[in-house]
Nucleic acid binder design. Structure first.
Lengths: 235, 235
DNA sequence: AAATAAGTGTAACATTTGTTACAGTTGTAC
DNA sequence: GTACAACTGTAACAAATGTTACACTTATTT
């Protein structure tokens, strides 16, 4: 099977494939019937519960995964930009179905590589295996952090947790920084937390009135980190 | 290092080690400085956030993992019986710290095997790798199911989801069975859902009054599965 | 069998969050 | 600059859940 240029480029930048030497990757995939699919903005790539036996790699575009018991009530799990695998942490499960709804939110392209090919690659290439393990372990961490946010019951608590996490991330680079840029607006954050938008705004206002944080445009400044921490502790 | 009899037995029954031929396992571990630790009932094995570089295997006893932002508000994640690995899905993460609090709830014993030994075993033994992948993928599924329960906002919805899952599991063995034994009492279930016990009881009563389920002792009977499903759909 | 503990059902009330609606603010397209 | 859309702040009210308390039932122990 001929591999298109753009897919090759995507794969060399994919966090789990980049360990495989370029030629080796080409050789492996050349002999393999991997599938390619394209999706328009708004199309559903996979439904929650669908079975799969392939490693899915998003080679182009952006997807959003969300969880919903049926219609209605949905909360966003993750937004994934190409090139990256998705649902890879579930590939080797006994009953490996998509745990989330996967929606294309831009012109997207995915390729699908059969499970057994992946296993073969693991044997031929220890680095690939390690990257796969690391990528999935990071995903598991992400899931468990998400779990943590949902575990916190009060909206103020969720906000505090979120802000402390974001601030910690920023402080790794600039240790004394006490403000950061919000990556999500309130509407998105409310979906992420699984709460209503006005309720989120209300709690945000309370934190501001209490002098714990300040917010201007999409920049949040932490004024009293101890109080912020105590909100979590006091839960 | 000498390997005690009981640990050997435990390992051969451990879901990720059972693929390794007995002699091979002994040989591999003989040359390795793996650690052994014992814990009494109630002792904390690991705190949320602790770093680790070893695969942890519970060889004896029972542990409970729970999540908590600090003191107070805790929700139970999982109860694990020996012999099983724990936190294995996070072992290869970039910053691999315990995502949960791990508590011994019985006389327990664990062994710890360094990461690099595990990698070596992967290379020598494809079955071991596959079992490890499967075990972790199942964990990821478990986490995402847990996420699903927390995502559902109403208590009635959580109960419906839970009952439908349990019933589906039972029906795999007995297709026309419409009742099942509860593995958790209401107090435990409330902790699992992250809600208060009286609120759970109230919602339970409502489902009973509406004729959707019946419950006697710890046996739940589904009387109207369509209505149960529609509770989830209507969310 | 009595005593005790563990689990369940339920009620009154407090608290939090959701819902709906609208006004003000900011950003963007034309 | 105007018009429009997206975002934010906020208020009144509804609905759900938490809290506390207690009665009742069911296991377990003695």
């Amino acid at each position: 099977m001929k591999i298109e240029e753009n897919i090759q480029v995507a794969l060399t930048h994919c966090p789990i494939c980049s360990a495989i030497p370029h030629e080796h990757l080409l050789n492996s995939l050349k002999n393999v019937e991997f599938q390619k699919k394209s999706f328009k903005k708004g199309e559903i790539i996979a439904h929650q519960g669908d079975n799969f036996e392939h490693l899915h790699i998003l080679t182009k575009g952006t997807i959003r995964t969300k969880m919903a018991s049926e219609e209605g009530e949905e909360i966003e799990i993750e937004i994934i930009n190409a090139p990256k695998p998705f649902a890879s942490a579930f590939l080797f499960a006994q009953k490996n179905s998509f745990p989330v709804e996967v929606e294309s939110i831009a012109e997207s392209e995915i390729i699908m590589i059969p499970k057994d090919v992946i296993l073969k690659l693991f044997q031929e290439n220890l680095n690939f295996l390690q990257q796969f393990l690391t990528f999935n372990a990071n995903k598991a961490k992400f899931l468990s952090q998400k779990l943590n946010i949902l575990t916190i019951k009060s909206i103020k608590g969720k906000i505090s947790f979120y802000i402390l996490e974001e601030l910690a991330a920023v402080q790794k680079k600039e240790p004394h920084q006490n403000s950061f840029q919000m990556r999500r607006n309130q509407t998105q954050l409310a979906a992420y937390f699984g709460v209503s938008r006005p309720a989120l705004a209300r709690s945000f206002s309370q934190l501001k009135n209490e002098g714990i944080i300040a917010a201007k445009a999409n920049r949040v400044t932490v004024l009293n980190i101890d109080k912020l921490r105590s909100i979590l502790a006091a839960l």
